[in-house]
């Protein structure tokens, strides 16, 4: 039953049908409450639907799985303008992947910590290779303008 549900979940995610995806992911979590992958998908669905409070509530209710959604949790806090909380959440992460750095750059920009922010964007531009290089260059320009 689970592989079929995960296949549905994948299809709905690819199609951006996040409302329906949440229904499927809830079925998966009924069968397998500690599934980190499914839980992460659920939080991603909430974020894509703009339901940041709901995402945070789901994370609070499931402390066991909270460590697998640190980036997502911090992103919700950032969108809710709880910027200092977002920074604390990012600092609590034991791994420093590029997504964590990306969000840390945005958080530091909002907190007007431009020197640290500048260093992060320099690092990201050096280390990442994806579709968002131009956006990062733009962000770096904004940081440099703010540093003047």
């Amino acid at each position: 039953i689970l592989p079929g549900l995960f296949a549905d979940l994948q299809r709905l995610g690819q199609n951006g049908q996040y409302d329906r995806a949440i229904k499927v992911v809830n079925k998966i979590l009924q069968e397998s409450p500690e599934d980190e992958t499914a839980f992460t998908c659920k939080i991603v669905c909430f974020i894509q639907l703009g339901k940041f409070e709901e995402a945070l509530a789901a994370i609070r209710k499931n402390a066991k799985l909270a460590s697998c959604v640190v980036f997502e949790k911090a992103y919700c806090e950032y969108r809710l303008n709880r910027t200092n909380e977002a920074l604390k959440t990012l600092d609590s992460s034991d791994k420093s992947d590029d997504r964590i750095s990306e969000l840390r750059g945005q958080v530091l920009y909002r907190l007007e910590k431009y020197d640290e922010c500048f260093d992060i964007y320099r690092g990201l531009l050096k280390n990442t290779e994806d579709d968002f290089e131009e956006e990062r260059e733009t962000n770096l320009s904004a940081v440099m303008a703010a540093m003047q």
Binding site: L9, T40, I47, E102, N139, A142
Partner: peptide, 21 residues
């Protein structure tokens, strides 16, 4: 206000489900 992109939103995506299928 200078342009500043929310790139992090673009990085919010499902983890790989390959080994669940």
């Amino acid at each position: 206000k200078p342009l500043f992109f929310d790139v992090a939103l673009s990085l919010v995506e499902f983890p790989s489900l390959e080994d669940k299928l």
